[in-house]
Simulated scan of single mutants.
Amino acid sequence: MHIGIAGAGLLGRLLAWTLAHHGHRVSVFDPAPGPQPLFDGQGAAGFTAAGMLSPLAELETAEADIAARGWVSIACWAGITSALAERGHAVPFARRGSLMVAHGADLGAARRVLAHLASKPLRDEGGNPSGHQAPSPQVLDSALLRSLEPSLHGANGPLHAWLLPGEAHIDTVRALQALHDDAPGVAWHWDQPVHTVEAHTLGLANGQARRADLAIDVRGIGARPALPVRGVRGETVWLHAPGLGLQRPVRLLHPRHRVYIVPRRGDTVLVGASEIESEDRSPVSLRSAVELMAAAHSVMPALAEARILRMDRNLRPALPDHRPRIDMAPGLLRINGLYRHGWLLAPSLVDDALTQLKLGRLPTHALPGIAAAMP
């Protein structure tokens, strides 16, 4: 088939990569000047994301079927990164679990979060029990925490900590670049914004109409007014911290902050958590930067000597119910509303849509300890 895709963010690249490897002829249109990240708040939100794949942790605020999709996506990312590596495109992906930590004064609030996680059985999109049991957080004493992450300890006393087994993280920048570079035959049309997407047709901003057997709309907030999508601002700080040696994503459970610290290659860590109901794309505010870095320093004192590489921001596409949405009609596919769960949900949504359309499947690896075949 000839398939036209509006949007070259995470969903667009994942769709183009999968469809190309199943023999389809793919054209992708995007307003960005090229495939590389600019970190200016204007490009694909996937470049800004930290890449935490945390279905269990997200149960704090998300529905149980979101977590079920997340476990499927982790198995897909294992298969995708393996397939990319076989063709010379290495993408750092690790499944060592993640950590939740809390200061002693915040133990009550942390226990309420953990009780909430335990109260949500996994369910499919129809609200039915999935038949699978999510792993439970494992309490870590000080010695176990020190053996897993020596640099993780409270600045003013010991931390309470829990290991969330089975969770993972991925290098988002490397993954987006690899999906672009390993998509054989895909025609990438940069500086080509799409204004309308209808059945079999992409309407470009320059007035041209591009016909295709299937038109796919994955433009995020650019899909307005066809979808009631809005932008939710997120901010991250990139730090260079030689010798830190962090192996797993860390979430700080705090009454006011849900700060996360995610390791990247080259002694780099990302610190983030801000979620602001605003479509402002201006640089990171002083308040956000101070709060994020102070909270991270409180559980990882070695960050005091880290160097700030960049502060990034972008807009996550969210629908009114904060849930993802797949719309299908003859000659038309729309996927949107990934909100704060983009990397956690994208493979599951893409695989679901392409399976229904009989256009292909994502590679997947069955992972021990996780029901990789969850609905």
Rank of each mutant, 00 (worst) to 15 (best):
R281N: 15
S278E: 06
P301V: 08
E305C: 07
S298I: 13
I276E: 07
I308R: 04
I276H: 08
A302E: 02
S288G: 12
L319Q: 02
P301R: 00
R287L: 11
L319Y: 05
S298E: 04
E279N: 10
L286N: 07
A304P: 05
L309W: 10
R281P: 10
L286C: 10
P301C: 04
S288Y: 02
V284T: 13
L315M: 13
L309S: 12
V262C: 06
A296P: 01
P283C: 12
A296K: 00
S285V: 07
S282Y: 14
D280H: 12
E277R: 10
A302Q: 13
I276A: 07
S274W: 05
D280I: 13
T268I: 15
V271W: 00
A302N: 05
I276Y: 06
E291N: 11
V290E: 08
S278L: 09
A295E: 03
P301I: 06
S285A: 09
R265T: 01
R281G: 13
P317A: 05
P283E: 14
R264Q: 12
D312C: 13
H297A: 08
L292M: 15
V269A: 02
V271P: 05
V290G: 14
R316V: 10
S282Q: 14
R310I: 03
G266N: 13
P263V: 01
S278D: 07
G266T: 00
I276D: 04
S298D: 05
R316N: 07
R316G: 09
R313F: 11
L319C: 04
S298L: 06
R264W: 08
R316D: 10
A273T: 06
